[in-house]
């Protein structure tokens, strides 16, 4: 499932990252790489962006960016 569709409270491991260019690089630089565990914390009050926990810290990104991240749900 792509990261944008995961409900708050669930977590999993990243299986693939699509896209290219600066945004993809940025996402990976921030720790979202293949095999990393992510947990979805919450959704912003207005519906977007989302807050996730990755590599021990909180990161916010838009659903349209999270769309490129494929995650294997684990719980």
């Amino acid at each position: 499932m792509t990261l944008d569709k995961i409900q708050p409270g669930r977590s999993g491991r990243i299986s693939a990252i699509r896209g290219e260019g600066a945004v993809k690089r940025r996402i990976m630089d921030m720790g979202l790489t293949k095999g990393a565990s992510v947990a979805v914390r919450k959704v912003a009050p207005l519906g977007d962006p989302i807050e996730i926990t990755v590599r021990g810290y909180e990161l916010s990104l838009r659903k349209e960016e999270a769309l490129n991240i494929e995650v294997d749900i684990q719980n």
């Binding site: 945004v23 996402i27 962006p49 810290y57 909180e58 990161l59 916010s60 990104l61 838009r62 960016e65």
Partner: peptide
């Protein structure tokens, strides 16, 4: 523009 931002404690 993209929006990828750390939320510090």
């Amino acid at each position: 523009a993209p929006f990828v931002m750390e939320l510090p404690a």
